[in-house]
Design a protein around this nucleic acid. Structure first.
Lengths: 237, 237
DNA sequence: TGGTGACCAAAGTGCTATTCTGGTCACCAG
DNA sequence: CTGGTGACCAGAATAGCACTTTGGTCACCA
């Protein structure tokens, strides 16, 4: 939430991204044209290309901005309650905040109609590594503060953690329509699974969370900033 | 593995299914024609239709027969060692045996090239419910014999169990090619997750497994039979 | 009477003409 | 002079059509 200096250009970028996001959700990736976005955002088509090099990068920016907002929400929760940095609490919130944002939900549940080839965008590459790095650092801090099961090293989670989380996203489109589970209940199951599988048996003390919270929050703030930079800087960095 | 009476018709069905499976794996769902299957199986095209009503049902039968064989392997392992009925051992083997059978692997990892619209086949409906029922019964037996965490009722697993398992299948196509994890290692992670999440902290005694094993094995034998019936009886039941 | 393969409708494929749209850049308003 | 624009163009997407393939049937036959 730290107010970085915002230029008029960023405001215009936001207007364009708002329009693009709106049309993306209403029409789906394929049907939205740059012309239409420019018209509705009240700018010339060329102006769009002053911000992003290609159509693909523009839509990537839509996703990156949403992701940044989602991570902001995660970091804010951690600031409000240090216990929120626990793996199961973090991933629980990650799940809920992602599913509540239509663009991200479509991304994570692979809504083909909305997203199409959006996924394979090569623009995601640099952010993928930023995300991986942040994840590694985060788990490192947890391990250092005894917030992972004893003997569990951060890299031990490289495979099983994303795999389990993926299951909860991938299950969404397969759930029968009459399912009565709320989003919160699903999130609880995810949290329960992660806590039992990866966290210590005894609940850590508030002091242990407090000691690690600052570092963890910094990691997520930086990650959010990386996403935002990727969204606006479009052309380079 | 119980030898049910096999007719000449079943032998012919097997020859056709063998051919269909072979071509399915080599050419993919789309390219395989009924003509080609009939020719290679040494029967007339009309004969294929004496066994299955549609092309879709024929390929469904290919999958059902594989599934039956996979469940046979699971049941055999349980017969050899009653401890194999534990949830984490069962799902571990389920995962390994599924991934080792190309047809099932393609099905579970959603290999689009091989399978295409194979998935949405309405013929799967009746087996889905058979599978669901078997799963419920199995979990019921586990609960009755103290092989689930105390307080955990079978229906409590309806959502989180398939969800976690799904993650391990869905992750497959997303793993970077240079991953060094073996199938066994992945299976170990799955087993570990399930054991910690759903099973009692203390390892149950051999007697507890032995008491439940007969019932559990019966459930899986019946399920295998249901799959086999669906594969051959094509037209009705 | 169980099995077959010629037959047919319908779906799929390849090809061409036409439309659409991402991306550029000469030009202009402030 | 400079940030912004929209007419313009190449190449990609789409529609339309002729032609081929193939799932499924059934009259016939060994």
């Amino acid at each position: 939430m730290s107010e970085t200096r915002r230029s008029d250009l960023d405001d215009r970028a936001d207007r364009i991204l708002d329009t693009a996001k709106d049309l993306l959700l209403r029409w789906g990736y394929r049907r939205v044209t740059i012309d239409e976005i420019a018209k509705r955002a009240g700018v010339g088509k060329g102006t769009v290309y002053l911000h992003w090099r290609t159509r693909e990068q523009l839509f990537f920016a839509v996703g990156a901005r949403e992701a940044a907002a989602m991570i902001d929400a995660v970091a804010a929760a951690m600031r409000a309650d240090p216990a929120e940095i626990a793996l199961h609490r973090y991933m629980r919130r990650f799940f809920v905040e992602t599913m509540r944002r239509p663009v991200l939900r479509a991304l994570f549940t692979r809504d083909a109609e909305t997203l199409d080839k959006f996924l394979s965008s090569p623009a995601r590459q640099p952010l993928q590594s930023a995300k991986l790095l942040a994840s590694r650092e985060y788990l490192g801090v947890l391990a250092d503060h005894g917030l992972l099961r004893v003997g569990l090293r951060p890299e031990d989670l490289d495979y099983p953690l994303p795999t389990v989380v993926l299951g909860f996203f991938a299950m969404e489109p397969l759930l029968p329509p009459e399912t009565e589970l709320t989003l919160e209940e699903k999130a609880d199951h995810l949290a329960d699974t992660l806590r039992r599988t990866f966290e210590p048996g005894a609940v850590p003390s508030a002091a242990e969370f407090a000691g690690a919270a600052d570092n963890v929050i910094k990691i997520f703030e930086r990650l959010a900033r990386d996403y935002r930079d990727a969204a606006y800087g479009g052309t380079d960095g």
